[in-house]
Design a protein around this nucleic acid. Structure first.
Ligand SMILES: [Mn+2]
Ligand SMILES: [Mn+2]
Ligand SMILES: [Mn+2]
Ligand SMILES: [Mn+2]
Lengths: 144, 144
DNA sequence: ACTGATAGTTAGTTTGTGCTAAACTTGTTG
DNA sequence: CAACAAGTTTAGCACAAACTAACTATCAGT
């Protein structure tokens, strides 16, 4: 009853495809999350600030913002600061929540805050809803 | 004593840079891990098999193998199957161990095997040694 | 030994993500 | 109000990772 080779391969291939898809969304998620944070904290999201927080050049931010605008997550007009669309705000909000959850989970496991923040920045894009639920359950049990 | 804006930005930027670096290594890790597995199970690693397990075309595998050869992880000769260098074998081994650890950890947390395997495929590339240690500790406590 | 099926390669394209350098706006301030 | 600094945009480059389509090599079975 062990599945044949083709079926095994197809299953594996779907996993890799899912990771590639997650990477497609990854930049969008980190950008909108950061844009929301900057607007919240300073009133506006500027290209220079995004660039310095992301560790890339202004030109790179510009390119990416253009793509995110095409994708419907942000709006921007020449020489003006950047805003989130409804869709962008929704994505920012769920990304922020998931980010925090991953950080808190890692810290509950005993990882120090600095490392938790660093690892979460990558991990957050690859956790399914089921795994997030397991994270929540662990933290609830710990506290309770 | 709250750090100034530039310092905060620099810290954040380093985190994002680390994620970008991890993504650079990601394909290499998944490829050598799979090549090692195929050699182990079937005696050789062929382009078609890699392609079907990864869910990409033969042409894509070919390109990537060329790049991995340039990077020193594999050797390949035209129309012959693919081999790992010493360095490639070492990377395959550490990648395999880390992959398994992440899967087992997620399952120990209560995530089902299917989801654990799927999530691990992405997560594995973003866990620091410290976080892996926390995973090990959790599993030891659970068992003990 | 041929030949057809299977496997591998090559060429050319697309998209994403980064870079530098140069040009251009905007807004402040002397 | 003119000059300057700060910020933004554009142009042009490079590389990785995917694709399709066309070509070439290998190897088993007749
Ligand atoms: Mn995040
Ligand atoms: Mn992130
Ligand atoms: Mn990733
Ligand atoms: Mn992986």
């Amino acid at each position: 009853m062990t599945a044949d080779k083709e079926t095994v391969a197809k299953l594996r291939a779907e996993r890799f495809q899912r990771v590639r898809d997650a990477h497609q969304m990854e930049l969008a998620e980190d950008y909108v999350e950061l844009i929301a944070e900057l607007i919240d904290r300073t009133g506006e999201a500027r290209v220079v600030d995004l660039a310095s927080y992301l560790g890339v050049t202004n030109a790179t931010v510009n390119n990416t913002i253009a793509r995110l605008q095409r994708a419907g997550f942000v709006t921007s007009k020449p020489y003006r600061s950047i805003f989130l669309t409804e869709e962008g705000q929704a994505l920012a909000e769920t990304s922020r929540e998931r980010h925090e959850l991953v950080v808190h989970f890692l810290m509950a496991l005993g990882v120090d805050e600095f490392t938790a923040e660093a690892d979460a920045e990558g991990i957050e894009h690859h956790v399914s809803e089921e795994t997030l639920q397991a994270f929540r359950k662990f933290m609830a049990k710990k506290k309770g």
